[in-house]
């Protein structure tokens, strides 16, 4: 069964066709990597799927429901979580409170005016933090954390509403290679346990080839390839996009 179905999605900014007639599917429980050079339209795709941007044309279906035209918070309520390329946590809150905020929202308690927030869903928040290995930082202000740690917090927040689909836009951007591998391994373990489908972008080809179930390739807004690691590696069009710039896969990843 397909979980997410993208049909002929397009979006232009002025004259730039950022996403051009893109169609693909994410199957239930699949770990799907979207790759492509900078400016290929990956983030724009993510922003349309989670409702932050309205597509010019095309449609987005999730579990037989049409997401097109819904706002981010409605899409989130349907079970689609996301992390951001540029991290955005709530800087005036502690790490645990960041996760609690998502849990509070998930429980529909946003407009409660009385019982203090700090005591709500604290156990569950600590549990989520434990799973991403951040429980020791629970009571530190989130803005003090190192970059890689913030990415883990983002993951904990994204898991708070028990999503069935997780969108992760460059979850490892700015991390050292070792760290990247660890984070994606962690994500993979968590989502397999929960049966969550994942669509993610990642620049390190080693990571992509090691973990992704399937890979789709975007270049200049168009989907140019769709297949497993081997078929992508051997695809002449993909080779041109990456090797055409005179870089190897690995170096192309490191440069961006």
């Amino acid at each position: 069964m397909s979980d997410l179905s993208i049909r002929s999605l397009s979006k232009a900014f002025g004259g730039v066709r950022a996403v051009n007639e893109v169609s693909f599917e994410v199957k239930r429980g699949e770990f799907l990597a979207m790759i492509g050079p900078n400016g290929a339209g990956k983030s724009t795709c993510f922003n349309m799927i989670n409702g932050q941007l309205a597509p010019d044309s095309g449609s987005i279906w999730f579990e037989e429901k049409n997401l097109t035209g819904l706002v981010p918070r409605d899409i989130w309520r349907l079970g689609v979580g996301r992390t951001f390329q540029v991290t955005a946590t709530f800087g005036s809150m502690t790490v645990a409170e960041n996760v609690q905020m998502a849990l509070i929202s998930h429980a529909g308690e946003t407009f409660r005016l009385w019982k203090p927030a700090a005591s709500r869903h604290r156990e569950r928040a600590l549990d989520l933090l434990h799973q991403v290995g951040m429980h020791e930082a629970a009571d530190r202000p989130s803005r003090e954390l190192a970059y890689g740690d913030v990415k883990r917090i983002e993951l904990a927040i994204a898991l708070a509403n028990d999503p069935r689909l997780l969108l992760m836009d460059e979850p490892t951007a700015g991390m050292a290679p070792r760290e990247r591998n660890d984070l994606i391994a962690l994500v993979k373990r968590l989502v397999v346990e929960r049966g969550i489908s994942v669509l993610f972008t990642e620049h390190s080809m080693d990571v992509v080839f090691a973990f992704a179930d399937r890979i789709i390739v975007l270049a200049r807004g168009k989907l140019i390839a769709d297949g497993n690691a081997k078929s992508i590696r051997d695809n002449p069009q993909v080779r041109e996009v990456y090797f055409g710039t005179g870089k190897t896969f690995a170096r192309a990843g490191a440069a961006t």
Binding site: N50, Q52, V71, P72, R73, W76, R77, R82, F84, A88, T89, F90, M101, A102, S105, H106, T110, I157, A160, N161
Partner: peptide
Amino acid sequence: LRAEAIGI
């Protein structure tokens, strides 16, 4: 952005 993305 983040707030809207967690349903607020």
